[in-house]
Design a protein around this nucleic acid. Structure first.
Lengths: 240, 240
DNA sequence: GAGTGGTCTAGACCACCCC
DNA sequence: GGGTGGTCTAGACCACTCC
């Protein structure tokens, strides 16, 4: 159950164990968990280690603590758990669709004002511009334009633009994407985008501007997206 | 600097101290913080207590840790920090506007299907229905319909509906609002809402459906909102 | 009063990074 | 090799809740 000589931290083993019990139903919504001291004695580990495991479960919304009373399983429905920041590719896969891209433009140019500001670089600096139609099950869902500082990130190719940029950033470059700010607004499709997305005048679209940051706070990419409102709804979970 | 006999936890005092140093500029973006052992010795406290303070700062995005190297101040621009889940009232105040409400409907009725599902109650159960035009600087921004289980929450009055429901939940009832899921989509104004928001046919709107939860996972309220797209853009910050 | 989570201590060993 | 954060221990006292 808990392997003390494993390279996997004990708190993480306990965390996964409890998580499994919740997901498999042996711990149900509203149930009282064993106390921290009980866990500590059962597994012959320190109470502080137990606390670290439970604190992580609290952060992830699996359980909540009540002072002087105990720790309980949350009511949350885990089948509809919402992930945090996701890429288009991940998003569509999660919705059970097959994502693909059509490259509209791949170029390197001096950063436009708005882009330079978002990426916190000078106007003269070179950026990649990657414009793609993003499809799900071969149906156009969005038009997405990504800007990345060429000085910060090297080696983006058309090849990579055809798959997932996030995967390239994280798996190949080993960058730690930490968070993103997004500006979401409702609008009407404009004439340029109309054809690319197979829409007609007056159709509503969801405009999303995203700036993605690494854990040290450096902006990684600036993305402007136009989503077909009839095909795409944005879902988020926010902490108070 | 650090008062050990204060009722305020030591980790929280240290946390606030470091936060102040960052905000006032004595610790700048990219700066290396004193090591955990250094803090511990300086303030004659345990390293675990220091770690608790720094862990909270990491969660809030103020600093980040690099294994084997140290802890650094993030690049984040704190003047534009984005808060988490906010109410309309808080949101507008933060944007420098004066929020107000116009009550359109205040009633108690059996929960419609969609509402019952969101609040996890039976169809027959009574719910408050509070429909309000939400104004900023006396200009209509949104039409908002809130549903709250009458069985769970008692004592909502028209009086309260004229101010802030969140304030009532948190300050008066001492409820802990934990998080909310939101479904955001782009649409075109419909004929019923057109007049109330002073809009015309074909104008784009932002539709937001929100379910707010307490820390034990109980749904507190279900809200459907229609925002004027020309006046309102939604801004969020998401963790990866 | 007994049990719970919240805070705190004074150590320890590890893997990792940089010199 | 020396310093850093990551993990872990075996205690302790507190405030709080419930009986």
């Amino acid at each position: 159950m808990i392997n003390k000589s494993s390279p996997i931290p004990i708190y993480h083993q306990l965390e996964e164990r409890i998580k499994t019990e919740i997901e498999e139903g042996s711990l149900k919504s509203g149930d009282l968990l064993p106390s921290e001291r009980e866990y500590a004695e059962t597994f012959k580990i320190s109470r502080m280690t137990v606390r670290q495991a439970i604190s992580n479960l609290v952060s992830n919304g699996y359980v909540y603590r009540k002072k002087g009373t105990g720790t309980f399983v949350s009511q949350k429905k885990f089948e509809q758990i919402l992930p945090g920041l996701t890429s288009f590719t991940e998003d569509m896969k999660r919705r059970g669709m097959v994502p693909s891209n059509e490259l509209v433009e791949f170029s390197i140019l001096p950063a436009p004002e708005e882009v330079a500001h978002a990426l916190d670089i000078k106007n003269s600096e070179s950026v990649y511009k990657i414009e793609r139609i993003r499809l799900a099950d071969n149906f156009p869902m969005a038009l997405e334009t990504t800007f990345v500082s060429k000085h910060r990130i090297e080696g983006i190719t058309e090849e990579i633009a055809h798959t997932s940029l996030y995967e390239y950033f994280e798996s190949t470059l080993n960058l730690n994407i930490d968070h993103a700010t997004q500006l979401i607004e409702s609008s009407i499709i404009n004439s340029e985008e109309k054809k690319l997305l197979h829409m007609k005048t007056g159709d509503p679209v969801l405009l999303i501007q995203r700036t993605t940051y690494l854990d040290d706070g450096t902006p990684l990419e600036f993305v402007k997206s136009v989503y077909r409102a009839d095909r795409y709804r944005f879902m988020i979970d926010m902490k108070r």
